[in-house]
Simulated assay, not measured.
Amino acid sequence: MTAVAGTVLVLNSGSSSLKYQLLHPDTGEVVHGGIVERIGETDVPDHKAALRLVFDEFAARGLDLTDGAGTPAGIAAVGHRVVHGGRSFHAPTVIDDHVLSEIRRLSSLAPLHNPANAQGIEVARELLPQVRQVAVFDTAFFFDLPGAAATYAIDRELAQEHALRRYGFHGTSHQYVSEQVAAFLGRPNAEVNQIVLHLGNGASASAVRGGRAVDTSMGLTPLEGLVMGTRTGDIDPGLVLHLGRSLGMSIDEIDELLNRKSGLKGLAGENDFRALGALIEAGDEDAKLAYDVYIHRLRRYVGAYLVDLGRVDAIAFTAGVGENAAQVRADALAGLEGFGIVVDPERNAVRSGEPRRISPDDAPVAVLVVPTNEELAIARDAARF
Rank of each mutant, 00 (worst) to 15 (best):
Q194S: 12
Q175S: 07
E337D: 14
A182F: 07
L23G: 13
L239E: 09
L276I: 13
H170T: 11
R329D: 04
D144Q: 10
D252V: 05
I378W: 00
F55D: 03
R52D: 10
K288Y: 02
H90Q: 07
D56N: 12
S88F: 08
T93R: 00
V10Q: 02
F55W: 08
D144I: 11
T372W: 00
D381W: 00
I103Q: 01
T93H: 00
H296R: 09
D155N: 13
D361R: 12
H32F: 12
E285T: 15
L241I: 12
I195D: 01
D155I: 10
L298S: 05
A349P: 09
N348D: 13
S352G: 13
P72I: 04
T151E: 14
P364E: 01
I341Q: 01
D252R: 06
L18I: 12
K288D: 07
L223K: 00
Q130G: 12
R105N: 13
V367Q: 02
P188F: 08
S88V: 15
D381G: 04
I75H: 03
A326W: 06
A135W: 02
G338S: 05
A275G: 14
A183H: 09
L63R: 07
G171C: 11
P129C: 03
R274Y: 03
A377V: 03
E57S: 13
S246Q: 14
M228V: 11
